[in-house]
């Protein structure tokens, strides 16, 4: 497993995948810098800046990035005929699939860390006097990351199945764009997997309300875990049987 992980690192090290990781945190940081906070709101500056930065990130960029990264970790195999070489090596298909998935979520975690770094940078530049609310920030960012896992699982399955780079992108866009409408819907939002990163990232920051949009956290947990298991297992089983 570890040996295969290193082999993947070698392939991805010299690829533009690392730039993708910076895009959303950089944009969000610009939003954060552009925000004005009235002096009387100074106490809540961190939370407000975080909400400002996390909203576009969680709503669009993070789900889309999940699609891009999943397609990217499969791209070199599709382009260079690497699947048949790789799978004729003494490495199990299960290992290949799990390692690819770990790379996707690893890079997503890196993105979340960069977003946090961007937020801290904004706060430092603007000289926020309030203490950094670490517990809320970390739990929201980790929550958003966990909420991406079902999406990553589905996108990886699609990326493995289709050799085109554009097809998984289209799938990602088709499912992500309805977020703009659904995330405000009390009825459907909590049940839509693509809305989960946004909900998870913002729920902690708006602690005043219990749950999100009146939905208890248990529901969200079930949606995330349930869709993750369904998507991951179908992709995993499909890859085991795929003809190379």
């Amino acid at each position: 497993m570890w040996r295969f992980f290193r082999s993947e690192l070698l392939k991805l090290r010299k690829s533009p995948i690392w730039l993708l990781v910076f895009v959303s945190p950089a944009l969000s940081t610009i939003f954060g810098l552009g925000m004005r906070i009235a002096p009387e709101m100074e106490e809540m500056a961190w939370g407000m800046t975080y909400t400002m930065m996390a909203a576009p990130h969680g709503l669009l960029f993070l789900p889309l990035l999940t699609g891009v990264l999943s397609a990217f970790v499969c791209r070199y195999e599709h382009v260079g005929g690497g699947w048949k070489q790789m799978l004729a090596l003494p490495v199990s298909r299960g290992t290949v699939y799990v390692v690819k998935f770990v790379w996707v979520i690893g890079l997503l975690l890196l993105t979340q860390c960069l977003l946090l770094a961007g937020l801290l940078a904004v706060g430092t530049v603007k000289g926020y006097s309030a203490a950094v609310p670490w517990d809320i920030l970390v739990s929201s960012l980790v929550g958003g990351w966990v909420a991406c896992m079902p999406l990553a699982a589905l996108q990886l399955a699609v990326s493995v199945a289709w050799s085109s780079f554009a097809a998984p992108m289209a799938v990602s866009a088709i499912f992500t764009l309805p977020n703009i409408l659904l995330v405000n819907s009390e009825k459907y939002g909590p049940w839509y997997p693509w809305a989960q990163p946004m909900i998870a990232m913002l729920s902690g920051a708006q602690q005043a309300e219990p749950g999100v949009l009146g939905v208890p956290p248990e529901t969200l947990f079930i949606v995330i875990l349930g869709s993750f298991i369904a998507f991951f297992l179908s992709g995993f089983v499909y890859f085991q049987r795929k003809m190379i």
């Binding site: 392939k11 382009v79 260079g80 005929g81 690497g82 048949k84 070489q85 790789m86």
Partner: peptide, 16 residues
């Protein structure tokens, strides 16, 4: 497979 080396159809490679 540990004891087998193979080249199937056109060669596989990572161009970058």
């Amino acid at each position: 497979l540990r004891r087998v080396g193979s080249l199937v159809e056109y060669p596989s490679y990572y161009g970058h």
